[in-house]
Amino acid sequence: MDPAMINTFILYIIPIFIIAFILYIIRALSGPTISDQVLAIDAMTYDIAAFLVILSIFFREPILIGAAIVLALWIYALDIYIAKYLEGKEMGE
């Protein structure tokens, strides 16, 4: 298939992702509790990870895709830290 057509399709998809991203970030900045914020960051970051994969097709740069794997792995770590903190135990135990 023609690469130009794929790029045109992605150009029309990008605004939808951006609107979703803005809505997530509103919740992430204003969530009443810490849990709400972290949940919104979680969803937002997986959204960005998917977006990075699509962008690396858009740029035609296969090596850029490594960033998406790393982003998907580490946001899980943030969840675990906040959960451990909220459970109220000593962090190492």
Binding site: V70, W74, A77, I80, Y81, M91, G92, E93
Partner: peptide
Amino acid sequence: ATAAVAPLLILIAFSQY
């Protein structure tokens, strides 16, 4: 820096013991 997060995850999700 990537590998250093693995022991940290273990320290927090399991325990340091």
